[in-house]
Amino acid sequence: MRTALKRRNVLHAAWRHCNAVLSKPERVAFILKRLRELYPQPPIPLQHRDPFTLLIAVLLSAQCTDERVNQVTPALFRLASTPAAMAELDVEQIREIIRPCGLSPKKSRAIKQLSEILLAEHNGRVPADMDALERLPGVGHKTASVVLSQAFGVPAFAVDTHIHRLAQRWGLTSGRNVVQTERDLKRLFPRESWNSLHLQIIYYGREFCSARSCDGRHCDICRTCYPERKNPKQTRKA
Rank of each mutant, 00 (worst) to 15 (best):
124 G>E: 02
83 P>C: 06
135 R>C: 00
29 A>W: 05
237 K>W: 14
127 P>N: 05
33 K>G: 06
190 P>N: 10
160 D>P: 05
54 L>E: 02
23 S>A: 11
83 P>K: 01
89 L>H: 08
133 L>M: 00
228 E>T: 10
65 T>Y: 05
62 A>W: 04
133 L>R: 00
105 P>Q: 08
109 R>A: 15
219 C>H: 05
64 C>V: 08
159 V>K: 08
124 G>Q: 02
116 E>P: 03
81 S>C: 14
55 L>Y: 07
111 I>A: 02
26 E>K: 09
161 T>E: 05
147 V>S: 02
85 A>S: 14
162 H>R: 08
86 M>L: 10
94 I>M: 07
148 L>K: 05
207 E>H: 13
6 K>A: 14
217 R>D: 04
215 D>R: 03
20 A>N: 09
134 E>W: 00
109 R>P: 04
38 L>S: 06
89 L>D: 04
167 A>L: 04
147 V>E: 01
17 H>G: 10
229 R>Y: 04
70 N>P: 13
103 L>I: 12
52 F>L: 06
40 P>V: 07
3 T>G: 12
87 A>C: 09
195 N>A: 12
227 P>L: 06
55 L>Q: 07
122 H>Q: 03
40 P>M: 09
30 F>H: 13
185 L>Y: 00
84 A>R: 13
7 R>A: 15
8 R>F: 12
109 R>H: 12
45 P>C: 08
62 A>N: 04
131 D>H: 07
195 N>M: 05
70 N>H: 09
145 S>M: 02
205 G>R: 02
223 R>E: 01
81 S>H: 15
192 E>A: 12
145 S>K: 02
42 P>V: 06
172 L>C: 04
75 A>D: 13
83 P>L: 04
226 Y>M: 10
16 R>Q: 14
172 L>G: 01
129 D>A: 03
18 C>K: 15
237 K>P: 04
